[in-house]
Write a protein that binds this DNA or RNA. Structure first.
Length: 267
DNA sequence: AAGTGAGTCAACCGCACGAGA
DNA sequence: TTCTCGTGCGGTTGACTCACT
């Protein structure tokens, strides 16, 4: 990444963009392409920061940005992805062509969080021996607010959060050390301050938080188990509201993260 | 008609990360 | 190896709209 000695911080405009500013930016990028955001304002004749130009282009001016209402399918996908990834809006946006992370984030905060909560409450009132935390609880800082594993038995499944935790499934009888050995290196670097064991059929799911705050997220867990026999047991404990692993969910999740190492590069 | 509160969304802010110097 | 800076990300803010009283 190159560096520029150029500085252009004085007298910058802030706030809403005008049509003429939009046109200047569009014309410049159409001619010269994206990138070099710090120099674009100067070269395009804009009194804006590079950050502001980048944001305006990516979230609004780009030709393939999809405007308008979200479809039912998009709603469903966002809710599923949010359960899986938490507030990782850029990753979620990457699965929705034409939608930006900012747009999805706004949409979630204003609309889908409520919808997701409503769906959860609907499930709560159906006869079931499965306990789940509400999807909106992804915003909570720790999984410690959920029922302790001591209260868990074979008939009750405590569903760990899909964010700010790591889940590692391993056969009953294996020690925590064995579980730790299959954790990603980045996770092992942290010190575990919470550890919960939850029995799911013949496997255990470990739910950990780390003191350095550099906690794992569930997509790492997915990568960990993608293709392994325990993957289905992990599926038991997460995904989209179905308690039992079904072929469609396994296929969906597998395809979602089997992106030729794309995700792995980001992690 | 005016006031008010809730909802929406574009834009800003601060931070982390990575790469070049 | 360290420093500096560009880039990208998630959280937050504030202006605007609209429904309701």
């Amino acid at each position: 990444m190159g560096r520029s000695s150029y500085s252009f911080e004085e007298g910058l405009n802030k706030g809403a963009w005008t049509t003429s500013e939009d046109n200047l930016l569009i014309n410049y990028i159409n001619k010269h392409g994206e990138g070099k955001w710090t120099t674009i304002p100067y070269k395009a004749g804009l009194k804006r920061s590079g950050k502001s130009c980048r944001l305006r282009w990516l979230n609004y001016l780009r030709p393939n940005v999809k405007r308008g209402n979200f479809s039912e399918e998009e709603d469903d996908l966002i809710i599923r992805l949010h359960k899986l990834l938490g507030n990782r809006w850029s990753l979620i946006a990457g699965r929705l062509p034409g939608r930006t992370d900012n747009e999805i984030k706004n949409y979630w905060n204003t609309t889908l969080a409520k919808k997701s909560r409503f769906l959860h409450l609907s499930q709560m009132h159906q006869p079931s021996n499965i306990q789940r935390p509400p999807a909106s609880d992804h915003l909570l800082p720790s999984s410690s607010t959920y029922p302790s594993p001591q209260a868990t038995n074979n008939k009750t499944l405590n569903r760990p959060m899909a964010i700010r935790c790591d889940k590692v499934a391993f056969p009953v009888g294996e020690s925590s050390a064995v579980a730790a050995s299959v954790m990603p290196e980045t996770i092992k670097a942290g010190t575990i301050i919470e550890e919960e064991l939850v029995q799911v059929k013949e496997n255990m799911v470990m739910n950990c938080s780390f003191e350095d705050g550099n906690v794992a997220v569930s997509d790492q867990a997915v990568m960990e188990f993608n293709g392994l026999p325990d993957f289905e047991s992990w599926m038991l404990n997460d995904v989209d509201g179905d308690c039992l692993p079904d072929a469609e969910n396994v296929e969906w999740l597998t395809s979602l993260f089997d992106m030729e190492g794309e995700l792995q590069k980001q992690l």
